[in-house]
């Protein structure tokens, strides 16, 4: 008898956890951490213009953003990974781009190289060149740093730079943008990539094919992630209003999100 009661209580606890989310005037956003600082500020502005609404913003990564929004557990998903069937199922998400988030190639200061051709960069990242000497640098083994498979910036690097090739499996995996930067700063011979709107300190920011990144010409830098806001087709007007507001704030460049400059 007692056992049965315990069982029922335990099962009730387990099953109720999913059905308690009550939604009224409250909107939720989940997704890529790279755009989080900007979103926090912009959301505050939207809330001020729409009394009665509150919006919560949380990280979790691009993939989580897509999954949550397609399953109806969030109103807006933020992602710089393109949606696919596996992640979103049959839901046909609508989206708006926030802008471009530059992806910079960075190396340890002592590698002796500041400029690479795209082909050289490819060979280094794919593990085909294993010494900086091969690309005109010092005699230092190359240590490639990468991000987890779920990372949007890794997807873009593999798509845009490696043309579908893979970063070497011998690469060291850094869990976050910040961890990547810290690891490249510390590790002699390191080569990695970060999402950043300005020039990070204590690393060599590499020019690619002669193109040098600078915040003033950030709109022309060829490597970038595009964080997008995703919502379900049947989303309410307030969700669409929020997304439009977020995608059009002029102060986005202060947070490293640039418009395309032609």
């Amino acid at each position: 008898m007692t056992w049965l009661m315990g069982l029922i209580v335990a099962l009730a606890c387990l099953s109720s956890s999913g059905v308690l989310s009550v939604r009224s005037q409250h909107l939720t956003m989940v997704g890529a951490t790279s755009a989080l600082p900007y979103l926090r500020r912009a959301v505050a502005g939207w809330e001020a213009e729409h009394p009665g609404y509150t919006v919560s913003v949380s990280g979790g990564g691009s993939v989580a953003g897509l999954i949550e929004v397609s399953r109806g557990r969030a109103d807006i998903g933020v992602s710089d990974v393109r949606p696919n069937q596996v992640l979103t199922g049959k839901v046909d998400l609508q989206s708006l781009a926030l802008g471009r988030l530059p992806i910079l190639f960075i190396a340890h200061l002592a590698v002796g190289v500041r400029n690479l051709s795209r082909a050289q960069l490819q060979r280094l990242l794919m593990g085909q060149s294993t010494n900086w000497k091969a690309v005109g640098g010092t005699h230092t083994p190359v240590i490639v740093m990468t991000r987890p498979l779920a990372s949007g910036s890794l997807e873009i690097v593999q798509h845009e730079v490696l043309r579908g090739g893979r970063v070497t499996p011998r690469a060291i995996v850094a869990l976050s943008n910040g961890a990547m930067l810290a690891a490249v700063q510390e590790t002699p011979g390191a080569l990695g990539f970060v999402e950043s709107g300005n020039i990070p300190a204590k690393v060599a920011v590499l020019a690619v094919d002669g193109q040098v990144f600078h915040p003033h010409n950030a709109g022309q830098w060829p490597f970038y992630a595009v964080p997008r806001l995703y919502w379900r087709p049947q989303a309410s007007a307030s969700v669409k209003s929020l997304a439009l507001y977020l995608a059009t704030r002029e102060y986005r460049p202060q947070y490293g999100i640039f418009d395309r400059v032609s």
Partner: peptide, 18 residues
């Protein structure tokens, strides 16, 4: 106490087996 213990054990068993 017996009931609490039994309930705790049951919960533990359910969660563990689950």
């Amino acid at each position: 106490p017996t009931r609490i213990t039994a309930a705790a054990t049951a919960t533990f068993a359910v969660v563990g087996l689950g």
